[in-house]
Write a protein that binds this DNA or RNA. Sequence first.
DNA 1: TGGTAGCCGAATGTATACACTGACGCGTAG
DNA 2: CTACGCGTCAGTGTATACATTCGGCTACCA
Lengths: 244, 244
Amino acid sequence: MGENDRMTQVEKAIIGLRGLVMSGEFDAGSRLPEVALAERLGVSRTPLRQAMDRLVSEGLLERIESGGCRVASFDLDDINDAIELRGVIEGTAARLAAERGVDAEVIADARGLLARIDEGISGPNSVDFDLYVRLNARFHDMLAQMAGSDLIRREVDRVCRHPLASPNAFLRGQEIIPDFLASLVRAQGQHHAIVDAIEAREGARAEALAREHARLARRNFRFLRDADPRLATRIPGLSLVTAQ
Amino acid sequence: MGENDRMTQVEKAIIGLRGLVMSGEFDAGSRLPEVALAERLGVSRTPLRQAMDRLVSEGLLERIESGGCRVASFDLDDINDAIELRGVIEGTAARLAAERGVDAEVIADARGLLARIDEGISGPNSVDFDLYVRLNARFHDMLAQMAGSDLIRREVDRVCRHPLASPNAFLRGQEIIPDFLASLVRAQGQHHAIVDAIEAREGARAEALAREHARLARRNFRFLRDADPRLATRIPGLSLVTAQ
DNA sequence: TGGTAGCCGAATGTATACACTGACGCGTAG
DNA sequence: CTACGCGTCAGTGTATACATTCGGCTACCA
């Protein structure tokens, strides 16, 4: 990986540790040993501890009073709250974008992006899943910026990074769900509606739509959870979910 | 300071650095020298850098691409956005509390707290300002917990810690405003209404009230800004505000 | 005289060494 | 046999030492 050279040790530790925790390498609630982890990630303890601070603020780890960190565990309520929060924050971004207005060019960009998603999911019968995931993430990024506020953009990014509430969380693996394509179509319909509302300066509608849009994540999660227990070890983050 | 013994070096650095920055010791946009700061705060560079990470995530500092941190600067839009965000988050806490319901005991506690505030501001003619500030903070803490979600509570705490959007930000110094007491009375009226709405399970109303309640901070800030430029050096955080 | 290249210094990012606290185990006494 | 106390040690929190990079200054050339 050539771009590893430009990656600082802290980023390396953040990405590596996040990947390890999400993959279920450590049981939920287990304490993370710093020295062993540092060696495993190929960094020293200093950047590793910075990475741990970061993951604590993301909610993926919890600090232990007596020292150190443990892997967080989530129940259904936690996930629903995180999804609710994302809906609220993205809803605010959409509302502010509508109220404050955005350049026609930005609207056009968003429409272009949505057109590409339309193509992707209305193909013959095989959906380019990775493409959808990538474009979906980009759409939510665009939404974050449309309010024209750095603070709002940062906050949207934050809640979208939440391991169990990101727009693409639990999207991989959905292939097994029968009407999974219908779910994508529905989500995409909401994307269009949100952009419409922003363009029409309908703040309340944009906010409500974005909130409801986040709710799809609940369905996705429940489907996946009920589908097959064996998936828990294959879907990133699913191993951190406790049985209510 | 007896409890300084139990305070970790990182907390010491966080509190000290936050105080230094808020006091206007450093100009907005100026780079923070680590070695000098560490010596001044009586800690080593390691906990100081952790504190800087924390203040970056709080928005008080900004990371510089080439390395190090600088003091953030805020214009009116930044402050309005931060206040808006707090209103949205606190509004969500209020709405969820109403929708999910809270124990009668908690409602009673909140009422008791509000009664103490009522006493404080309806006294003869002198208002116990520090008392109001403290009880106001406690009320917002209680609100954060009422949703019954750790995630929501943490997020409310986060946005309330934002230097320029906290419920008590720019409250000190308001004594000079003629109808400042009227402003407190109005805020207190909203406190009561929020609790009423939560008790009555009126989620939408609770949310709207909490949002509007945050808007009072805008007025407070504008009053203070227009009042007397000399105050800038005495009100914590005001020195970080640029002239639009 | 202005601009550029190269070097030097300072300050950050990282690694490592040290200190101290909390936990586990072993031994002894009741 | 159990319970309490002490000692050891693993592991975190903190300090310091090292390396690397960025910025600034000077000197030289056009």
